[in-house]
Design a binder for these strands. Structure first.
Length: 277
DNA sequence: ACGAGAACCTGTTTGC
DNA sequence: TGCAAACAGGTTCTCG
């Protein structure tokens, strides 16, 4: 479900409710999500205080007292539901984990498709953790820019669409924002990644930053089941230029083209073949 | 090594 | 109306 702007919005919503709070009780209702829960998951968390909540790519990382870190990925359908007090019983069929805080609030992790994951690590090992160590640069950071994107694309024959979905190239983009960024940069999703290195990468990097910043400002995009931790809906979906707009006329310019939908490596791509070359 | 496609899972929408 | 196929914001494994 969520891409970088949605995860960032969720982290910003959770941070003030979690940082400084102690996990008084952790209930896990099944053995696994995408991967098994670690041994003694609840016991290793209960009694710990959350010292810091961060986002890395589409991962949420909570640092806890005692040197442990909780790593969470929301997959396609993961969401956090905040209850001021105990949630209603019985839990919903997709409410897999329940964190009760020392202020009495409860955070429920709900994930219909179970593509999400939760695992534990030592804070000291986070940079070398297998889930995190190979991720590309944060697109909103200074290390990501035209030259660095160009270098990452050089020599790659895969379509630029696939290269941007690859979290090694740049971390945090998903299907929606890749489509939107390529539209904004005027680059065809079918173009070989290597041919974007150079001048086109100089357009693409700022397009990616712009789209992501605007989406964060709008609280992310709500299509199906994404909600902020507070339960509010994002509204960036109203600003999509191409995503989900197959057949509509290309907006924002007078090229006269229509938005097309094609499938690339099994996923829908939306683009305007007149404007994007 | 690299890229395409399948697999993981459930719910909703689309099409015959 | 009913059922089956297609589709959904992600990641990872296998196969060629």
């Amino acid at each position: 479900m969520p891409e970088l702007p949605e995860v960032e919005t969720i982290v910003r919503g959770l941070r003030p409710r979690l940082e400084g709070r102690t996990l008084s009780r952790v209930i896990v209702r099944r053995p696994d999500l995408r991967i098994p829960f670690p041994e003694n998951f609840s016991r290793r968390l209960e009694g710990r205080t959350v010292t810091r909540l961060d986002r890395r790519a589409k991962y949420i990382v909570a640092r806890l007292s005692g040197g442990t870190a909780l790593i969470v990925h929301l997959g396609m359908s993961g969401q956090w539901v905040i209850h001021d007090g105990r949630p209603a019983e019985p839990p919903g069929p997709h409410d897999h984990v329940e964190f009760t805080l020392d202020d009495g609030t409860t955070l429920v992790y709900r994930d219909v498709r179970r593509f999400g994951l939760m695992t534990l690590a030592l804070q000291a090992d986070l940079a070398e953790h297998p889930l995190l160590r190979d991720l590309g640069p944060e697109p909103l950071g200074n290390a990501f820019n035209g030259p660095s994107l160009s270098a990452a694309l050089r020599g790659r024959r895969t379509p630029i669409k696939a290269a941007l979905l690859d979290q090694h190239t740049v971390a945090g983009l998903g299907n929606i924002y890749v489509c939107e960024a390529l539209f904004r940069a005027g680059i065809s999703p079918r173009r070989a990644a290597a041919s974007v290195a150079g001048r086109r990468a100089e357009r693409l990097a700022p397009a990616i930053k712009g789209i992501l910043n605007e989406a964060i400002e709008a609280g992310g995009s709500t299509l199906r089941d994404y909600v902020q931790a507070s339960g509010e809906l994002g509204y960036f979906q109203h600003r999509f230029a191409v995503y989900g707009r197959e057949g509509e006329s290309c907006a924002g310019c007078d090229c006269g083209g229509a938005i097309q939908r094609i499938v690339q490596s099994g996923r829908s791509t939306f683009f305007c073949s007149r404007r994007q070359r």
